[in-house]
């Protein structure tokens, strides 16, 4: 009896949660296609013109370009720097490695605002703040550790014996990397890359603090569209929100196709 009640409660909660979500998202989606929507359950007429309006008014082509540049560069840099770092951390044991890793991964654990503001102040002092480069640099602060964090177990599971077999049979360090390590770590690179990509596109705090007029990503532009001065039709803001949601959702679906969350087990202590 209690079990049934409990199950019912869980079901009610899940249904309520989903309805709520569908309600909000549905409302935004419907609104973005509405010509006008007052006091009726559904809009009286539909249009796609708010998308065109948003595109023009909020300079979405430029915003999307910035978003793409920032996300692409951060992903590439995080993998390019993170992979060798993960390799070194996986292969070398040294004293204080555990605490060092923890310190290193701090940006992943603490709220971004805590270090975002001093980081922004510093970057503005060096005149990097407000530029696309500044946004990229700030995003790399948590994204590089994230990439390493995700890559580490993938590299650790590649047996050292494979590297040794390659070396003995004639491969230089570089050839071992290219022919053995990278191919075997490919799932990890894919996983880390997609996670960094999604997180960078979705990042608000750091990008908000560091972006200027020409270096806003989609989320930050969305924020300004909602709260900045000047009256904008709510339908156009909704249209923009739909664009954002679609992009992030598409990336998430893509990510989940490749990422195996069970592989992302991270161990600070290893060796048997």
């Amino acid at each position: 009896m209690r079990g049934r009640l409990w199950r019912l409660a869980v079901w009610l909660f899940v249904v309520g949660f989903v309805l709520n979500l569908v309600g909000i998202v549905g409302h935004v989606v419907v609104s973005s296609f509405a010509r006008r929507w007052f006091a009726t359950p559904v809009p009286s007429a539909f249009t796609t013109e708010w998308y065109a309006y948003a595109w023009r008014e909020f300079q979405l082509d430029q915003v999307l370009m910035v978003t793409l540049t920032v996300a692409g560069t951060v992903t590439a840099a995080a993998l390019l720097l993170g992979f060798p770092a993960a390799y070194l951390l996986a292969r070398h044991e040294f004293r204080g490695k555990g605490p060092l890793l923890l310190l290193f991964f701090l940006p992943l654990l603490v709220p971004q605002m805590t270090y975002g503001i001093p980081l922004a102040t510093t970057l503005y002092r060096y005149r990097i703040g407000g530029t696309v480069a500044g946004v990229i640099a700030a995003n790399l602060v948590p994204m590089l550790p994230l990439a390493i964090f995700v890559l580490l177990p993938f590299v650790e599971q590649i047996s050292v014996n494979l590297e040794w077999a390659a070396r003995v049979h004639g491969a230089t360090r570089l050839q071992v990397f290219r022919r053995v390590i990278v191919p075997l770590a490919l799932p990890g690179l894919l996983t880390a890359g997609l996670l960094v990509l999604v997180n960078t596109v979705a990042n608000f705090e750091l990008t908000f603090l560091l972006s200027g007029a020409g270096s806003q990503t989609l989320v930050v532009a969305l924020y300004y569209a909602v709260f900045a001065a000047g009256m904008r039709p709510i339908y156009s803001v909704d249209a923009m929100a739909v664009i954002y949601m679609t992009i992030v959702l598409a990336m998430l679906v893509l990510a989940l196709r490749f990422v195996r969350p069970t592989q992302m087990v991270f161990r600070l202590d290893r060796r048997d």
């Binding site: 014996n161 040794w164 077999a165 390659a166 003995v168 004639g170 491969a171 075997l184």
Partner: peptide
């Protein structure tokens, strides 16, 4: 090691799992 010109066989085989048998043999 790569300039010593040796061959080595390991206890756990240490074959490259992402390469075919042919590519494993051809590796060196």
């Amino acid at each position: 090691p790569e300039r010593r010109g040796f061959g080595m066989v390991f206890q756990n085989y240490a074959l490259f799992p992402h390469l075919t048998v042919g590519a494993n043999v051809a590796f060196g």
